[in-house]
């Protein structure tokens, strides 16, 4: 299996996760979208040195992983490309901010290190929240949620088609890569001299395939909006879920759980 086939498999794994059945999966997509945005906003609102405040926010993804039956390992596997970027965000802070904040066992911890770790924690938690939403919702339901929030249909259709065409392009890339390697034994990647024609052909082939797919959609009545736009409305359980979620986020945001737990033991 080449890397493109692997990528296709990973895309389908997300569909598999989204098609599972759990209390989390059954929640209205717009509600999940809103609470995810709320959670991310709460996480990023912590001060740049407030690592003890940010860390307890991990409780919420932990509960959602359990409620949705979503494997944590899959989350980190999927995030492996984004994680280095997130982790790199604050990597230079220790060089600029050398003020010593605390000493742990005699080792000084500078503001730079603290802010770097806080940024990393915020990034990881935000990615986890986005992953949980995608893994428990699926692209079609997510788009339905966006439409129910009155996001313009053009933007939503564009998002959905982009998602669909990722697999189309990946398939074309997979076929072309296999064809290339069959006639270029021993080469590790695509030789730089072939990049231009390779990318040009990929673009042309993907456009052809995308055109055919679009024709197939038009032939079955597609006129710019997917049918899911008229999906179900949020119910009492969805509202209850949103209320509990928001309450939990607010408690973790404004009650310093670290100090509270520490106070019990000290």
């Amino acid at each position: 299996m080449n890397r493109m086939d692997q990528a296709l498999l990973e895309l389908s794994e997300m569909d598999d996760l989204a098609s599972m059945d759990s209390p989390l999966h059954r929640r209205h997509p717009a509600v999940k979208l809103l609470v995810t945005v709320f959670y991310i906003a709460a996480v990023v609102s912590f001060g740049k040195y407030d690592l003890p405040g940010v860390l307890p926010m991990a409780l919420i993804p932990a509960i959602l992983f359990a409620a949705g039956g979503i494997p944590v390992s899959t989350c980190f596997k999927k995030m492996r490309f984004a994680l280095p970027l997130v982790l790199a965000v604050g990597v230079f802070n220790p060089f600029f901010d050398r003020t010593v904040f605390i000493r742990i066992g005699g080792i000084p911890v500078t503001g730079g290190v603290l802010s770097m770790l806080t940024l990393m924690a915020k990034g990881v938690l935000s990615l986890m929240a986005a992953f949980i939403m995608m893994a428990s919702t699926g692209i079609d339901s997510l788009c339905a949620g966006l439409r129910s929030l009155h996001v313009p249909k053009t933007a939503v259709s564009l998002l959905l088609l982009t998602w669909r065409y990722i697999s189309v392009m990946t398939k074309e890339l997979s076929v072309m890569t296999d064809a290339y390697h069959l006639r270029a034994p021993g080469q590790k990647g695509i030789h730089v001299s072939a990049w231009g024609s390779f990318l040009g052909q990929l673009l042309l082939r993907s456009m052809d395939r995308a055109g055919e797919l679009y024709s197939a959609m038009r032939l079955r009545g597609f006129r710019g909006e997917f049918y899911y736009a008229g999906g179900r409305r949020a119910g009492v359980r969805d509202v209850l879920f949103a209320a509990c979620f928001a309450a939990a986020v607010l408690v973790l945001r404004f009650v310093h759980v670290g100090e509270l737990v520490g106070g019990i033991f000290v």
Binding site: S12, D15, S19, G138, D140, R164, K171, R209, E212, L213, S215, A216, M217, L219, R220, G221, F222, R223, Y227
Partner: peptide, 28 residues
């Protein structure tokens, strides 16, 4: 008139067979 294209990969774009089958009827 229903048009069955030569390449089913060009015809089917939803994740599952059922979702693909209900795409047309729901559009109508």
């Amino acid at each position: 008139v229903g048009f069955v294209l030569q390449d089913p990969d060009s015809q089917m774009f939803m994740p599952t067979v059922l979702e693909d089958m209900i795409f047309g009827p729901m559009n109508y």
